[in-house]
Design a protein around this nucleic acid. Structure first.
Lengths: 142, 142
DNA sequence: GTGATTTCCTTTCCGAATGAAAATAGATAC
DNA sequence: GTATCTATTTTCATTCGGAAAGGAAATCAC
């Protein structure tokens, strides 16, 4: 594929931005031996190519009161339409990630809620679409 | 807990930054009816409180050639030390997330590799620590 | 009620970063 | 050698971000 689209310098810039996107172009330039403007041009290109899809912040879920963290494997009912399930996923703010999977189950997702009661309520809404298997995350390793 | 630490305006600012951390303080200020400087002071406070933990970019894994996406449940050997497993996780760049779980298995993790061969090699290294169950992600829903 | 204190916001100001345009260097084809 | 194309540097105007000073509102002691 388009592997020649990105050179080593692009990858260096990306790695730096992944760690800290507030680095100035000039600071990044020091690491890759370029002026800030050249770095800026490359970053603009990475955005236009769709390699960089956006800028965001990292945040502490516990500081926001999200104390419950669960991993859920979803086994969709055979009659349940995937489309309506996708709408469900999109509408539930407590679902942080969700993937269609091949292997065990139909979907896998990770959720955070502020309390066991909220998790319980979410599972009640989820069970309309199918069965599930749940594990609680008791620590983030990475 | 410290729920009174964050007011509605702080949450609004956080939500905006989660969507796009390149918004200027002034732009955010328009949404919350404050000057850019006031927004900047609140953001600084959110950083000092540890609510905001960092700034990063979103990126397209396929544009970087990471075509294989897998979800792995790890069942650690009873003799295997957790400490050495954590070092393993930290050293493997292809592991993007990992959590200690209570429920099915000991750890859960999500990995991306550029090829099935690389996934195979990663699993070879993983199997020293225990057993695993693997699902392939075939689409990101959220 | 008065005054002091604290907190938070606005105003003002300056250094630094960003983004655009023009000039320059390096590589390639012919 | 000449033309051409791409990527970088240089230069410049605009904007942003952070610090300091001043002011409004809430709290508290008395």
């Amino acid at each position: 594929m388009g592997q020649t689209l990105l050179d080593e310098i692009d990858l260096l810039i990306l790695r730096q931005l992944m760690q800290d996107s507030t680095l100035s172009h000039k600071e990044i330039g020091r690491a890759v031996h370029m002026t800030g403007q050249a770095v800026g041009a490359r970053i603009r290109r990475l955005r236009e190519l769709g390699v960089i899809t956006g800028y965001s912040i990292g945040w502490d879920p516990e500081k926001l009161g999200l104390n419950v963290h669960a991993l859920i494997t979803v086994f969709l009912n055979s009659g349940s339409a995937h489309q309506t399930f996708l709408q469900f996923v999109a509408s539930e703010e407590e679902i942080e990630e969700a993937y269609r999977v091949s292997g065990e189950g139909c979907y896998w997702m990770r959720v955070r809620t502020e309390s066991p009661e909220r998790l319980n309520a979410l599972l009640d809404r989820l069970v309309k679409y199918g069965n599930y298997k749940l594990s609680l995350a008791i620590g983030q390793v990475k």
